[in-house]
Design a protein around this nucleic acid. Structure first.
Length: 586
DNA sequence: TGTTAGCCTG
DNA sequence: CAGGCTAACA
């Protein structure tokens, strides 16, 4: 897996050795598949990780207002008693049902505790920064200690004070702490920026010959090295943005009464979405998973030195690999069971084969299509929906294959994400359009060109595009009828006598083959009507062959005539530009 | 004459 | 899946 370490990474490592710098950004880029696990506690990377985690938790509930920030808490180190106690109090405070009726003193106290929890979190972050390379100032650590003492001083005695005292001292402390905290955070942000600058100086020095040191969009796209820079540049922006959020949010938190149900950090969706109307818009979950599971080095490895294809956007991912699993599956089937016989292992909701299609032209290098990635990396080959009867050894091989396929898909995706993308309606047809067309085929085998124009409204139609789209459906039909004939003949060979014995269900091999072709990821629920039409078509072929009509060279035309009348209405959702994403989220 | 379906091939 | 080709059709 790591045998093909990239030149890019070697360069990075070399430069790192020269400068004697361990680098947060590099860690982000370099960390392996268990990205989060490998991060050294309190390294700078944890900041980002925690930010991401907080968002993950937020998104996971699906209801931001009800998110309890507890989920977003940075995990304290065991020896970090300060953080621990603070977190405990914060948790007690944040318990949604435990403390409903509060008198004023209680709320003041809880307010204080809440602030402490917030401080602990910030300190946690600051500590993280303190572990960064030498560019980070040491003053932060001191501040942290001071503040720890301060908190210890004023922890328990509050209840002995009079109400007035409590309020006034409290206000003073709050104002003072708020000020200090703000300063610290801004300082932190500045230091982080310095760190980033250093990182990018390294980058600039390596490819200054290539682009004169400019970080222009065009140059960034011009080769694999620059793609890496593009990625890093984006990361830089994200870091900056994240840090600003931290500062703003914490300052904000300290300026307002405590709100247990506060959303601490903005969701990644807001953070990364370039344009919701863009068909390439990813769900936040996908993006989150991509951060959580993506193996950056692999991705980098794979696109280093690879020319960026711009002209042809249609690259179906590794059909051979997919077919392999399918053929293995077929071999395991009873030869006589090709039609209408159940095969229990295929689960309709399997999410595994997502790599069958590469989502098109994502602009954000981190927006990897990793919904499938995490499943695959977790479940391995068994998640393909097909049961494997192979030996453990070949299981591993198959697992490797799956992993490789996933990575290559990701890398292709990355490559594509770096090709120039025109805003608005696309010039050409993207892989997503192809996927959409395939899904539409489940409803219509013979779409008119006017219908295609209606359903692909995000496409700038011209003669070429229209004929390409028509050609697609022609190809779909071709495959469809070839399968029909094949399975009809097989049924005859298998001794099926009556047409009525031919049933096409979701367990049928015919259906599986078709599903594999038009719905590789198996993430779309195929309409029942498709099964009915397929059954009719299969029976037509069966009858024609049995009757010997296939001696006529044009014997299929009669069948086509029947099938073309059986198109059903394509759901309105297919008119949406990003319907593929919408459909597959269900 | 332009468009499209279908077949064959790579 | 795309390209090339033919035949059918408007």
């Amino acid at each position: 897996m790591n045998s093909h370490h990239s030149k890019k990474q070697d360069v990075l490592e070399c430069q790192e050795a020269q400068l004697g710098e361990s680098n947060v950004l590099r860690k982000l880029l370099k960390s392996g598949s268990s990205y989060e696990d490998n991060i050294i506690p309190f390294s700078g990377a944890t900041i980002i990780t925690k930010l991401l985690k907080s968002n993950k938790a937020t998104r996971g509930t699906g209801d931001r207002e009800l998110v309890i920030p507890r989920n977003a808490e940075p995990e304290p180190l065991q020896e970090d008693t300060c953080s621990n106690s603070s977190q405990e109090s914060a948790e007690a405070y944040l318990s949604p049902l435990g403390k409903i009726s509060l008198n004023h003193l209680d709320s003041e106290r809880l307010n204080e505790e809440y602030l402490q929890a917030k401080r602990a979190r910030v300190e946690n972050i600051i500590r993280g920064m303190n572990h960064l390379p030498n560019v980070m100032a040491t003053s932060i650590g001191k501040d942290c200690d001071n503040r720890e003492n301060k908190r210890k001083q004023k922890l328990p005695q509050q209840q002995q004070h009079s109400f007035q005292q409590l309020v006034s001292t409290h206000k003073e402390q709050k104002v003072e702490e708020r000020r200090q905290l703000k300063l610290q955070l801004e300082d932190m942000q500045k230091q982080l920026r310095q760190l980033q600058e250093k990182f990018f100086q390294i980058y600039d020095s390596t490819d200054s010959e290539a682009d004169g040191g400019n970080l222009s969009e065009d140059s960034v796209r011009s080769d694999g090295m620059l793609v890496g820079k593009h990625l890093a540049e984006t990361l830089k922006q994200e870091l900056n943005s994240a840090m600003s959020q931290v500062v703003d949010t914490v300052v904000n938190v300290f300026s307002k009464p405590p709100r247990p149900l506060l959303q601490v950090f903005p969701s990644l969706e807001d953070h990364f979405a370039f344009n919701r109307n863009n068909p390439d818009f990813h769900t936040a979950n996908q993006r989150l998973q991509c951060f959580g599971n993506v193996t950056f080095p692999s991705s980098l490895d794979l696109f280093v030195g690879v020319p960026l294809p711009c002209a042809n956007d249609q690259m179906e991912a590794l059909p051979l690999v997919v077919r392999k699993s399918a053929s293995e599956h077929h071999q395991s089937s009873d030869p006589g069971a090709q039609i209408g016989h159940p095969h229990p292992s295929l689960h309709p909701s399997s999410l595994s084969e997502n790599t069958g299609f590469i989502s098109p032209s994502f602009r954000h290098p981190f927006s990897l299509p990793l919904a499938g990635y995490s499943f695959q990396s977790t479940l391995g080959a068994s998640s393909t929906g097909y049961s494997s009867k192979d030996s453990p050894g070949s299981m591993d091989l198959s697992r490797e294959t799956t992993s490789l396929r996933t990575k290559m898909a990701s890398s292709q995706h990355l490559i594509r994400s770096c090709s120039p993308v025109l805003p608005g309606s696309t010039e050409g047809l993207s892989p997503n359009h192809l996927k959409k067309a395939k899904l539409m085929f489940f409803y219509t085998r013979y779409p008119s060109s006017s219908m295609l124009k209606m359903y692909f409204c995000d496409v700038k139609f011209n003669r070429c595009i229209t004929s390409q789209l028509i050609k697609w459906f022609s190809n779909f039909r071709e495959f469809y009828y070839i399968q029909m004939e094949k399975f009809a003949r097989q049924a005859i060979n298998d001794g099926v006598a009556a047409v009525d014995d031919i049933i096409v269900s979701r367990d049928s091999e015919l259906y599986k083959v078709l599903n594999m072709h038009y719905n590789k990821a198996n993430d779309f629920e195929v309409p029942e009507s498709f099964l009915e039409v397929a059954q009719i078509a299969l029976r037509e072929f069966f009858s024609a062959i049995v009757a010997g009509r296939d001696v006529d060279p044009s014997w299929k035309k009669a069948i086509y005539k029947v099938i073309c009348k059986l198109d059903s209405e394509v759901p309105q959702i297919f008119k949406s530009a990003n319907c593929v994403q919408e459909l597959l989220q269900e």
